[in-house]
Amino acid sequence: MVDLIETLSIGCLLIGVLALSLGMIGLLRLPDVYNRLHATTKIGTLGAFGVLLSIMIQEFGTSGLSPMGVKALTAGLFILLTSPISGHMISRAAYKMGVDLCEGSILDEYEGERKD
């Protein structure tokens, strides 16, 4: 039983860390702010969630409803809720500041609606 918990926990941790490193590579490689936000919001969420899930499995599996596990659960829920909002606010602010879409963008239906 303890082995199973260990394995699951380490598996979640590996997935989370792998996702976070991919997100950072994406942040460096993708062309403009909007595409970079794709990498950080989605992959960042799964990465942080995976790490916290690993803590949760470890804590709930070995010591029941411990404070550390509850904290990890709360932090995970907050990240799931706030990470898309920050992505939305950054992209909106970038657009209002006049950051253009990167070369190779084929469509901008927001252009006409933009007023500032």
Partner: peptide, 26 residues
Amino acid sequence: EIIKANIMVAKIIIQPKIDIKPGIIK
């Protein structure tokens, strides 16, 4: 959907040459 999204973005990121056609859609 989050897991699907991550696999999709990860695929784009690890391509040797990034070839994307982004845009804003209503």
